[in-house]
Design a binder for these strands. Structure first.
Lengths: 231, 231
DNA sequence: TCAACATTTCGATGAAACATGAAATATTCA
DNA sequence: TGAATATTTCATGTTTCATCGAAATGTTGA
């Protein structure tokens, strides 16, 4: 038992392929049952149960019991952040199978990340919002410009916004597939909700993946000047 | 081979006590030889060599050869960030031995983190700078106030500053021992250098640890109103 | 109370991998 | 060139741990 042993045990917990699969399935904050997780990670229920036990002991996940179902979820966002930080420090995945490649593409293209837009589409949208002069990138945070404030209202984002937001400190979120920043926090969540509402985006076939609809494709081009064919 | 396998292999690399020790020794950016690392991690040179090999293959460290010495260092700051994120997501360490406890205390008290002040002292200093009205905490970054700009000059930090700094976006650094924010980036580095220069702080007995000198203790109290006995 | 389902516990197996002694390789210095 | 030092490679003992079959526990609804 040396110093840092808590760090190495946590890392070891994440450092198993099956457990990483489980954690990733929970990474967007959703709660899933043991059976579902076993299926997603493609292992037997016993195996999943064993892993879930270890993750509990390690404090990475917690459980809510509801009758004969047990809903597992990450114990907090700091766990998701840790996994994400590891992903960023990891060498890019060499793709082997066709299925794997298409899954990877779907997630790289667009997905949600604690509710807001991520992936290529997320980064592109952020770039566009800056190009339009609605946001300013000042290094560690984004700032909403005056024109940006007007746009929020025009575009109908307002109703999705919580009361108090500091428009001078919109969090930057580092994306692990693109390794680029994009807007995060409540404001990003609100914009994503609005896009959903407008029918420009919808949930994709793979967990957490997002699809740009046909309308969305045209309108994004129109509204933000994003060349969606490039994506 | 599933999706995410790059993530799990990276985590598995960090997830061994010996390797965590090695990575932690390199976490402040310094370069160390295989022998030094073997000593720090208290394993035989062969063992250390084997681990260093694996860390190289995993892309977490890189080596610079200089004659019969091979200097190892982290391959980049994103590796340090990943380890830090894991530390934050980890349950606090239960201390077993007396030596371990004193090491832990020394690091908790104060240490450098990529060159700037961290630990209790770092957090306390940041709190004090805000209390004095030199910095403003607006959520995701700190901002330097007008009074803060004057203070930088008065206190003699100016010479240590690089040319261009955005005083409206001083990075926040999340500390893994305190789990609190403190100021980071070039400005924090400059302040730390100045404190060293003034003789208020000096290097401590344990790697990366920092000691407050007798003068420093009095002056910090005087200048910032930090009650150093509380620490 | 019984049947269906969800989940966990137990035990065995097999593979992965950590640590080290011994020996090999490489570099410096006298 | 030869001795000293730094580091790696190899072979091996030992331990850890992921996986799954079989069985047990717990929950629901009829």
């Amino acid at each position: 038992m040396t110093m840092y042993s808590n760090i190495s045990t946590t890392a070891a917990l994440i450092g198993d392929a099956t457990r990483t699969g489980i954690l990733m399935a929970l990474a967007d904050g959703k709660a899933l049952t043991a059976g579902e997780l076993a299926h997603i990670a493609s292992v037997s229920p016993q195996t999943a149960s064993s892993h879930l036990n270890k993750l509990m002991e390690g404090g990475l996940i917690k459980v809510e019991v509801q009758g004969r179902h047990r809903y597992f979820k990450l114990s907090g966002p700091e766990v998701a952040r840790a996994i994400e930080a590891i992903a960023i420090a990891s060498p890019p995945l060499k793709v082997r199978s066709l299925r794997q490649s298409s899954e990877k593409k779907a997630l790289e293209y667009a997905r949600t990340c604690y509710g807001h837009l991520a992936g290529k589409l997320g980064v592109a949208t952020t770039d566009a919002l800056i190009a339009c002069g609605y946001f300013r990138d000042i290094g560690d945070v984004y700032q909403l410009t005056d024109r940006g404030q007007e746009w929020l209202i025009d575009f109908g984002v307002q109703p999705f916004l919580p009361k108090k937001i500091d428009f001078n400190a919109i969090p930057q979120h580092l994306d692990w597939t693109e390794r680029r920043h994009h807007i995060g926090g409540p404001l990003a969540l609100a914009i994503t909700r609005r896009l959903h509402d407008l029918g420009w985006i919808e949930d994709g076939p793979i967990r957490r993946s997002i699809k740009l609809t046909r309308v969305g494709r045209a309108c994004m081009q129109d509204e933000f000047g994003i060349d969606t064919d490039q994506l």
